[in-house]
């Protein structure tokens, strides 16, 4: 199977131990192999769709309305400072 487990782990910000790499590679291979079954179908006459519902052009009108959730959201935040959310410093990876 054509994928690089370390690249996927990097994109998902996961640090994998060697034994985890091996196990996950096997799991992913199984999953991709299962989905690959779809390749046996002839889809040349099927329009690609990006959505499962047969709906389009769902809009809202441009009207502003306060939601009043800020304080509740802040209460549930793991970290806050005043009216700000607080997050750990985003460290640059080498």
């Amino acid at each position: 199977m054509e994928f690089e487990i370390l690249k996927i782990a990097e994109l998902a910000r996961l640090n994998l131990k060697p034994e985890e790499q091996e196990k996950l590679t096997k799991d992913l291979e199984a999953i991709l192999g299962y989905v690959k079954k779809l390749d046996s179908l002839d889809t040349s006459k099927v329009e690609p769709t990006s959505h499962v519902l047969d709906l389009e052009n769902v809009f809202r009108s441009d009207q502003a309305k306060p939601s009043h959730v800020r304080d509740k959201a802040l209460e549930h935040a793991p970290l806050r400072e005043g009216k700000f959310f607080k997050v750990p410093k985003v460290v640059e990876r080498e």
């Binding site: 809202r60 441009d62 009207q63 502003a64 309305k65 306060p66 939601s67 959730v69 800020r70 959201a73 802040l74 005043g82 009216k83 700000f84 959310f85």
Partner: peptide, 26 residues
Amino acid sequence: TKSKLFCACSTEFGLEPNLNTCPVCL
């Protein structure tokens, strides 16, 4: 616009931090 792209929060500039937020944009 008066409101955000995908929710009804105001786009007004210079308000208190996080005042223009809702479940969608959070």
